[in-house]
Design a protein around this nucleic acid. Structure first.
Lengths: 221, 221
DNA sequence: TCGATAGTTCGGCCCGCACCGAAACGTCGG
DNA sequence: CCGACGTTTCGGTGCGGGCCGAACTATCGA
C-alpha cells in the first residue's frame, strides 16, 4: 500500500500523546522513557510503544546508557520541521520552546548541568582524571583530591566503578558519575555547598558552596 | 480538552485521503469537490467531509461560483508548510509540485486557460466587451464580431446570459463563459480551429486555428 | 416550472489503534 | 547469584473516525 508522504508524517504527529512526547523532547535534551511517562501521565508501556514508532520513522534517536535509554529528537532537520509546524499552528508567533538549561541539577545520584561539565573538564585538564575513548580512571592525585574533601574513594566491594562518565544531554558533554560522582554529590549536600530546590532534580549552590568549589576544583562558579 | 497543536495539524494530515486532497491542491489551482473525488477514487460525500474539516481548520479556502465550489490551499503560508513537510519526508529533494498550466483547455462548455484569458482581455480592451464589477455585457460591435464567425448571439429564450465571466483558477484571471462563451468553443471545434486531446479537458490549437484566432481577436497565439 | 447536476448532511458499519496491566528482559549494585 | 529498577513485548478492550449510500439543498439551463 502506497501512502501519501504527508499522511505518514501526519500520522506520527496526530496522536496527542505522541505529539506531547515530541514537544517535551523539543527542549533539546534527551529523556528517559519513565521520565516522559510521568510527564505525560500515561503508562511506561504506552510511552515505549510511541517512542518505538518515532524511532522507526527516524524522528527520534536513542542512546543507551546503562539501564537507561535516552531519547532525543533525531537531528536538527526534524527539530526545524517541528518548530515551523508548531509556529504555523494558530499563527502564534512561535513560542520559544527552548528552556533555560540548568546550571546545576542532579542526574540520578550525581551532579549534572553546566557546573558538572566544567568540573569534569577541569579534572581532566589537571590530570586528576584520565579519560580515553571508553574508560575513565582516577589518578593518584585525583584520589587524594576527593579524599581530602571527604569523599570515600576506597575500592568498592561492589562492582560499581569509582568513576564513570555520564553524558549530559543538556550540554552534550560528559560529567562525573560512578561511586565518586555520587559521593561528591553527597559531600556537597552534607556540607551545604548545595541545597535541593522544589523541583525533583533542581539544586542550587550556596554562597559558601561557590567558594568551596572554586577553591577545590579551580573553576569559577 | 486541550490538545497539542502539533497533534491538531497532524490529525488533519494523518488521513491518506485528506493528504491526497492537499497534495492535489498543491498544484496551486482550485478544484471542485467532484473533480477531487474522481481523482482520489472515493465518494463525493467523503471528499466533502474532508474538505469541510480542512476548511474549518483554515488550511483550505473555498470560493463559490454558480453551482460549483472551488477549493484551494488557503494561503501561501499553508502551502509553504506543506511543501517543507513533504520535502522532509524521505529527504527527497522536493519534487516540483507545480504542474505546467495548460495554454488551452476547456472549462465545462467553454474555453479556458492562458489563451482564453488573453482573448477575454483583448475583447475588453477593444470594447467588444464591457466588464464592470459584477456584470459583463456584449457591445454592438461585440455582437457583430461573434456573429461574423458563426456564433449564435440571438437573445436566449432561456435565462442563460449571453456572456458571463468565469474565473480561471490556473490563471487567477477571468475568461469568457455564458452562451457566447459556449458558442465560441463550439465554433472553434466545428471549424477545427481546435481539436480535443486525450485528456478530459485538454484541447490543442491547429495551425489554421492559430491564424484564425490571431485574425479574429488580434492576439498572438 | 422542471429535470439534471454539484454539493452537503445523515445514519450506520467497521477497522485501526491508543491504552493498560502483566510478564519478560536487561542492567545495576550488593 | 539475587533483588531492584528501567524498559519492552504481548493480549485484550474500547473508542474515534473514515467510508459509503441515500436523502436533501441549491443552481443551472431548457
Amino acid at each position: 500500500m502506497e501512502r501519501n508522504p504527508l499522511a505518514v508524517i501526519g500520522s506520527l504527529l496526530a496522536d496527542d500523546t505522541r505529539a506531547g512526547l515530541l514537544t517535551a523532547l523539543m527542549d533539546g535534551r534527551a529523556h528517559t522513557n519513565s521520565e516522559l511517562a510521568r510527564h505525560l501521565q500515561v503508562s511506561a508501556s504506552t510511552v515505549s510503544e510511541h517512542l518505538r514508532k518515532l524511532r522507526d520513522s527516524g524522528m527520534v534517536a536513542v542512546e543507551a546508557q546503562g539501564r537507561h535509554r535516552y531519547f532525543r529528537i533525531a537531528d536538527h532537520r526534524i527539530a526545524d520541521m517541528l518548530e515551523s509546524l508548531g509556529a504555523t499552528a494558530l499563527s502564534v508567533p512561535a513560542p520559544p520552546v527552548a528552556t533555560a538549561v540548568a546550571f546545576a541539577r542532579t542526574c540520578y545520584d550525581h551532579l549534572a548541568g553546566e557546573v558538572a561539565v566544567r568540573i569534569y573538564g577541569q579534572l581532566v585538564d589537571d590530570r586528576y582524571l584520565i579519560a580515553d575513548d571508553e574508560q575513565v580512571h582516577l589518578t593518584t592525585s585525583g584520589l587524594e583530591l576527593f579524599s581530602d574533601i571527604g569523599v570515600d574513594v576506597a575500592p568498592q566491594a561492589s562492582r560499581r566503578p569509582l568513576v564513570r562518565s555520564c553524558l549530559d544531554w543538556s550540554q552534550r558533554r560528559h560529567h562525573l558519575a560512578g561511586a565518586v560522582g555520587a559521593g561528591l554529590l553527597d559531600t556537597m549536600l552534607l556540607n551545604r555547598w548545595l541545597v535541593r530546590q522544589d523541583g525533583p532534580r533542581k539544586v542550587r549552590f550556596t554562597r559558601s558552596g561557590r567558594i568551596a568549589v572554586s577553591a577545590t576544583f579551580g573553576i569559577q562558579v
